[in-house]
Design a protein around this nucleic acid. Structure first.
Lengths: 166, 166
DNA sequence: TTTCATGCAAAATGTTTGCACACGA
DNA sequence: TCGTGTGCAAACATTTTGCATGAAA
């Protein structure tokens, strides 16, 4: 996996929880149990997830009803504001991934198994700048998703799964 | 506007309506009034739109209740299947654009005015292939959206508009 | 002890579906 | 005629909101 497109680590001095507490304090918001539980759970593992999956994991890890659905949504949006999570729209719903401690990257999206594979390419950044300059556009970010079928799914007999939104 | 990133035209022998009728027939589906009205309306103007906006335009152009909301959704999805429209997920809803008669391209998305600016770059295709090869991924398509603020909106005093989903 | 956060229930949004009737081939 | 398409209303999935209560600071 070490190649032109692999992902280097990023050094961070604070843990995600610490970073989030800093953010909350800087905004006069409170460090509460639900918020802590959510961040801890999210950053225990580096993977993509949605609100529903997160709630499920919380229920399983802590017992049902420890954190409510609205609080999950509210906290996710705070984590995006805080720069801890990146949000993208996939198949009609929001999907989140770690931003804090991980480098900018893009995705291969398998339409069969819905897996997201990360890659990073310097070229994308160059294109971004060139195009933006061309249009006098002030760039804030970008999202590149290459859709198709991953190696594993290519081997398997195709089951009729519907094409998801990109 | 003619530059490395401008969009050349694409030659097509059939009109969108004709192309859609061909598609419908090839699937044993019927050419109905609502379907014709929808395609005609959509291809009367080259711009990005969502289901709601389309319904509104239909209501205005034809009088209320000529085409129902479910039919709009059903027909949009057929047009995507037929390759006449491209669908993308933006700000939590589906946004459509012409695919038939227009070249593959990507977008600059202004977070302030929500405008989509098209551009095309050969480099993106090259990156696509290189990354896919690297991961033994079979590419079916891609979507690149560069977010930021467009020229016009950069000039204007910023009003506090929320960041939309990308 | 004063906010702010939470949970609940309900609402809002965008999209899909079941069904009886209408209509194209 | 036959089978597909349509509109309507209702269901759905996801996300957001109003409000009374609970808990940080």
């Amino acid at each position: 996996m070490s190649s032109e497109f692999s992902l280097p680590a990023v050094e961070v001095s604070l843990s995600p929880v610490e970073r989030f507490e800093e953010f909350l304090q800087s905004r006069g918001k409170r460090v509460t149990k639900p918020r802590r539980l959510i961040v801890e759970n999210i950053f225990a593992e580096h993977e993509h997830f949605d609100a529903d999956g997160l709630l499920e994991r919380l229920d399983k890890a802590l017992g049902r009803g420890q954190v409510s659905r609205p609080t999950v949504y509210r906290t996710l949006s705070e984590l995006v504001d805080a720069g801890l999570l990146r949000q993208m729209s996939l198949g009609g719903r929001s999907v989140y991934e770690h931003d804090y401690g991980y480098p900018q990257h893009d995705h291969l999206y398998c339409q069969k198994c819905e897996k997201l594979i990360e890659f990073s390419s310097e070229e994308v950044k160059r294109i971004r700048e060139a195009v933006a300059k061309e249009h006098n556009f002030r760039v804030l970010g970008h999202r590149l998703i290459i859709t198709g079928v991953c190696q594993e799914c290519s081997r398997v007999r195709r089951r009729g799964s519907p094409l998801d939104l990109i």
